[in-house]
Amino acid sequence: MDTSPPDHRGAMDRPTRRLFLMGTAAMLASGALISRPLPAIAQTADSMAIAELVTGKTIDPALAKRAVDAITVTQPDYPQALSRLASFATEQGITDVETLKTADGFDGELKNTAKTLISALYLGYAGTPVAHTSDDGVQFVTYTQALTYRLTEPYTPIPSYSRQGTGYWAHLPEAG
């Protein structure tokens, strides 16, 4: 049985360049050399680069931006934290998640920053669920684009999107 994840790697050259941009912008911003906000388009690209770095997957730029925006609603200082993570990766020359996760100094706040973004992209929401209340501030990121479902979709339909017909559940999926 093949349980290896579907091919989601590739385009791994892209994070480097964008991370560099983001790291530079962040350093400039933190060094107070510029005071104007970054153009929105640059922020979208930067979100995507760092999302690709922490997941090791190609990420739709709109999804990356939605994730960062949603996290920022629940955690207003998140963009700064993300810039610190981008700077760290740029300074260390890290371009992929496998190197990142074992890099010296990748712990504490830096690791949590990465986990928060990974979580939003894999789970489709940002924030901390609280049981039994309608009001926990959790923000929507995506449903069908959640990376978890992209992994498992060959085997299990995304709830409410079954196209497999009555009774399909009596057999194992063809994919394995």
Binding site: P5, G56, L100
Partner: peptide
């Protein structure tokens, strides 16, 4: 994170 994360999700699922 990364490959380990995907492997665990798929194995447990």
């Amino acid at each position: 994170m990364g490959a380990e994360l995907d492997e665990r999700i798929l194995d447990q699922s």
